[in-house]
């Protein structure tokens, strides 16, 4: 019984943490290079993901590196397009035209939480 109760509180804490995390604003920055079709595609795709999965709690900024080349160095950009998840931590990077939405969702922590066995 006692163990059961303890387990219950643990589950509660976990659930609360997940809720808090989900409620937090996701800060994203997408670096693109000029107005290439790939850039346009990436912008379109990430906007779509944000609107669908993070409605109202995302902060997406699109930066054109060809306008701000010095940012490439300071932000360690190599490939383009590159999406950086600044918050919540840990920071993550995604490269590509953001067409593989599953991987992005996983990386953003929007998928896979339910896959943790103890919460199944």
């Amino acid at each position: 019984m006692k163990a059961n109760a303890a387990r219950l509180t643990e589950t509660d804490a976990m659930a609360a943490a997940v809720a808090a995390r989900d409620a937090a604003v996701c800060v994203l920055r997408l670096y693109v290079t000029g107005s290439s079709p790939r850039s346009a595609r990436a912008i379109f795709n990430i906007r779509k993901i944000c609107d669908e999965h993070l409605p109202g709690r995302h902060d997406l900024e699109v930066v054109d590196l060809s306008q701000h080349p010095m940012l490439a160095k300071s932000e360690q950009i190599l490939a383009a397009p590159t999406l950086i998840k600044i918050l919540p931590l840990p920071a993550r990077r995604f490269v590509g035209d953001m067409s593989q939405s599953e991987r992005i969702l996983q990386g953003l922590g929007l998928r896979g939480a339910s896959k943790i066995p103890c919460l199944a």
């Binding site: 590196l65 060809s66 590159t82 995604f94 590509g96 953001m98 593989q100 991987r103």
Partner: peptide
């Protein structure tokens, strides 16, 4: 780094060019 589709190394080009 998570690869999510097509990309290029334009970032590197821009850095080098700059």
């Amino acid at each position: 780094i998570e690869e999510t589709g097509e990309y290029d190394l334009e970032g590197l080009f821009i850095r080098l060019g700059h």
